[in-house]
Design a protein around this nucleic acid. Structure first.
Lengths: 152, 152
DNA sequence: GAAGATTGAAGCGTCAATCTTT
DNA sequence: AAAGATTGACGCTTCAATCTTC
């Protein structure tokens, strides 16, 4: 494996952050007309794709979204206020809430998810299957390396 | 050019955002012991690499950092409070401030920048030169496509 | 003591509206 | 009118500390 020159490595890292920033900004513009934020859309996505109706605990939500547990409190607060999710007491453990999608939440997700999917497909149609596969592999290597670095 | 399956395209987009998130989180942990945030490090970087001593206007900083102009006000406020940058009145246009590095700011940057560079090189040493080149190219295509989408 | 949830303080980011200067 | 900077309102995120329940 040939050694990576420092300059282009830095360009790659900066490019990843800049591209993610761009995606985030643009996705906010998609969600905003629906009163939704990117973080809230991710919550909707998780809940909607879980068919068993049990829902996620806030801790599970935090782990899945890769954010701090304390963050989920406010996120769920706001989504409860708008009526898209609700907190249900867990029957076996009184410490935990099960967060579940409401009717309104599911309806909103049904409207917004296809729009988001289409934008993703439009933006990525400039890439070939090989490029996508290689890109995913590079990202996986980087994540692995970064994780290994953070916990030596 | 072969068509990109929707599923893997979405994995790629998610991977970019997740990797950037991971980088951001880890870089915060590097900067924090120095009382610095990632956003502030970027400001230091811009100012330090501009040798002419003229500095950036806040508008120029906003454009370079890809953030809203209003955001820069608070960022510069905080960095002025810690004494790392200062606002200097522009001599030709009384609307604009020139933001310049202080002695302290330059010293801090001299300490932190090599640490950051080394972490970047450690995390990216798992990649070959070819992988980096291809990765950068994919990101450039995506940014171009996303930008084109946002302003049709 | 450990785990789930919450709170308060702080920084970062957007947007809309305002002020000053050009 | 247009451009640079600022303000206020709001959401997202982290961290440290606290409360309740296991």
């Amino acid at each position: 494996m040939s050694k990576a020159p420092a300059a282009s490595a830095r360009v790659l890292v900066h490019g990843i952050v800049a591209t993610a920033d761009l995606f985030l900004r643009e996705s906010q513009r998609i969600f905003r007309p629906h009163g939704l934020s990117a973080a809230q859309f991710n919550v909707l996505n998780l809940l909607a794709e879980r068919a068993d109706g049990v829902g996620y605990s806030q801790r599970e939500l935090a782990d899945a979204l890769l954010v701090d547990r304390s963050n989920v409190t406010g996120l769920v607060d706001r989504m409860t206020a708008t009526g898209w999710v609700c907190r249900v007491d867990d029957v076996t453990d009184r410490r935990v809430y099960r967060i579940q999608l409401t009717e309104d939440g599911r309806r909103l997700w049904s409207n917004v998810a296809p729009i988001y999917a289409q934008v993703v497909s439009q933006v990525t149609e400039c890439l070939s299957t090989v490029e996508i596969t290689r890109g995913v592999a590079v990202l996986a290597k980087l994540q692995e390396a970064a994780t290994r670095w953070s916990a030596p």
